[in-house]
């Protein structure tokens, strides 16, 4: 059970700062979540911390590849993005 960071990541570091498991680290292009460490914050918080602070829609996905923050959910600009 682990989340994943996509290439939409802008490397703002916010997720790394709030991860309770220190599962997130930086690469040259994006941040990555270590699937061996990530617990999706199951035992620590009601919601995963990384996806609760990430400002970029679609940058964090679950195991099925579904975005935790789908288009429009953070910025409210869904209709414009899909129009």
């Amino acid at each position: 059970m682990a989340y994943e960071i996509t290439d939409k990541c802008v490397k703002c570091t916010a997720c790394e700062l709030v991860c309770p498991n220190a599962a997130i680290s930086e690469t040259a292009t994006v941040f990555v979540i270590d699937p061996g460490i990530c617990t999706e914050c199951a035992d620590a918080y009601p919601e995963a911390q990384c996806s609760s602070i990430c400002p970029i829609e679609g940058a964090i996905v679950d195991e099925l590849g579904d975005p935790i923050n789908p288009p429009g959910s953070l910025t409210g600009i869904i209709s414009l993005a899909t129009a």
Binding site: V10, C12, P55, L74, T75, G76
Partner: peptide, 15 residues
Amino acid sequence: APACNIQCNYCNRKY
């Protein structure tokens, strides 16, 4: 300081 803890509707932190 790249991380932010809020979103403002007038801001888009493009690099």
